[in-house]
Design a binder for these strands. Structure first.
Lengths: 340, 340
DNA sequence: TTGAAAGCGCTACCAT
DNA sequence: ATGGTAGCGCTTTCAA
């Protein structure tokens, strides 16, 4: 492998000039630059990333803590990861995956202090998250995907749950629905401080209250069976239900089954609107679900850019990035038909 | 940040002894080792990964080319990525994501030559793959996920399509089915040399031929609409069809819709067996699909271990890893009922 | 069992 | 506009 010194010798310039020609950190005459580039091409020179990192004290690598994804995650996370990796690359950075959960704050901090990454992207942040404190204390630059309860002084990107639930309810209310249910993630996730579970429910309740409507919200484990039971519970609590908002993909599939089992047609009798969904899940149902697709890709690039901003010295948290889910029309929502 | 020299000074030993105490590459007396460890703990010492990599000429990082996932990827890839990242970590390696497609062989080679990664995991390998030639020519250690047409001298892990299709057909034939269809990935993917499309169809045809059965195989784009059309084509070609094997998740959802639309019940009239599936997709249908789940996680760790083997000098390709998909019983396959 | 020192291949400062 | 050079924080010979 050719080194920078080899290039310098061949181009008959000093090593440092080659370095500057490459980084552009100081002007190099067109003539010498041309000779250097010719030499680099001839030798097939590739600058050594580790040497560069060691000398410059920047690894040009970002770390992404990769969630455990026990269950039906996948889609949204995959979109996010891919977008983050691509965005990092566009900015000349690598993305490394650190498969650590919320309880391994020390491991994450230790790795960060090994200098393999210049900053950390923290996925699936909980309302109270030990990793946040650990990284903060260690002065490791990081941005959160999601956000803790208190975000003062922290950088984050997140789904705008308030706006998403507001728009979901708005969509249904405009169709004439007034008896609307909500199938959330599991009670366990809420107890674990999983923020989306908490924020979405609050958003849904607020949106309903704003319209003087009664909010029927239930939790469901991430399985069709649990979703079916949740739908059943919802219908028992409010027999006149005409629409349901779901934020739990596996449960949604069970919920539609329960509706069918009761002889309720989608969307004629009950509208189903699935929010914060992965790409493609809407198409997996019949009829195709109306969904509000989680902005995984946008969050991925936004998170990378926020972190790079931090690295460049943007001490104050830039305008927090809050993105709503976009409505993707399907065939599972329709005007309300009274069934009381 | 404390350096190794700081530790050495505090422990009153030489820098090299600290290094050896850490790596174990040469014996260090228990007493000095204890002093060194105390010093490291006191200083909160973390060895610098870049310096280590530069000096040892090993980055302790593996690169994973991350597929573009234009289409319904997601689940299986996510499983694979997570498992690979975890396995790498267990072995003291990092996993970096390189978002490059099959046509960016040069970029992948260049990055590999920057020394940021000791080896490359190549996902979604095509039958003829430019990346394979590029990496081979550049002497970059790599292992393929999937395999090219000619695998001589190459290391790979892959789904055992022969065994998977054989077991799929076996499962159905044991249930009395003889008129069995196959819904494959798109014709475009076959034309692009996407190996699973080619290998699965061949495996299906072989399995059917072995039993003197007629193989009805069709391609379908990755969408429910295309899947529905494919199912329709299959039924028109063979009205007496009693079972269908699918290897296309989005298409599977459309296929079941087409069956229902024709008044055919699953599994009473037609059995559906979905192969090489992502986790959880079976549960998204009603009835729950019988599936053969792609061994994403197993492939991930196997791929990492194969690559690490290469790095340790295992020049000869170790026993190639070929893993079949495991049957996960659902409610979509049942004994055949003649409909001719 | 331990120490000293020569790099690894760059960046960035101090020169000129 | 260019050159010289001191590190960056380790690994790994070579010596003792």
């Amino acid at each position: 492998m050719a080194t920078m010194q080899d290039v310098a010798t061949l181009a008959q310039v000093s090593l440092s000039t080659v370095s500057y020609a490459l980084s552009g950190a100081r002007p190099v005459s067109a003539a010498t630059k041309a000779r250097i580039e010719a030499a680099m091409a001839e030798l097939g020179f590739r600058p050594n990333a580790l040497a560069r990192g060691l000398a410059s004290r920047r690894s040009h690598t970002l770390a992404l803590t990769f969630p455990a994804m026990e269950t039906g995650i996948g889609g949204t996370v995959a979109e996010f990861v891919r977008s983050a990796a691509e965005s990092a690359r566009r900015h000349g950075y690598h993305l490394v995956l650190w498969p650590f959960g919320p309880h391994e704050a020390d491991e994450i901090r230790d790795l960060a202090q090994q200098g393999m990454a210049d900053g950390v992207l923290l996925m699936e942040v909980c309302l109270d998250d030990a990793r946040v404190d650990a990284l903060h204390a260690a002065h490791v630059p990081f941005t959160m995907i999601g956000r803790t309860r208190d975000t003062s002084g922290l950088t984050f990107v997140d789904v705008d749950f308030d706006r998403t639930t507001e728009e979901a309810v708005d969509h249904l209310v405009r169709l004439g629905h007034r008896r609307i249910g909500f199938v959330n993630h599991s009670a366990a996730s809420r107890d674990a401080g999983y923020a989306p579970t908490v924020r979405a429910e609050q958003g849904f309740r607020d949106a309903m209250a704003r319209r003087d409507l009664v909010a029927h919200a239930v939790h469901s484990d991430e399985s069709p069976g649990a979703g079916r039971a949740a739908m059943s519970a919802l219908l028992n609590a409010e027999p006149g239900l005409t629409a349901v908002v779901t934020m739990n993909e596996m449960a949604t599939f069970g919920a539609t089954v329960e509706l069918q089992a009761r002889g309720l047609r989608i969307p004629d009798d009950v509208s189903v609107l699935s929010i914060v969904t992965s790409p493609g899940v809407g198409a997996m149902s019949n009829p195709v679900l109306t969904t509000m697709h989680a902005p995984g890709a946008e969050l991925g690039s936004a998170a990378v850019e926020a972190l790079l901003g931090l690295l460049l010295g943007a001490t104050p948290p830039d305008a927090p990035v809050l993105l709503p889910c976009r409505l993707e029309p399907g065939a599972s929502t329709a005007p309300a038909r009274d069934r009381t």
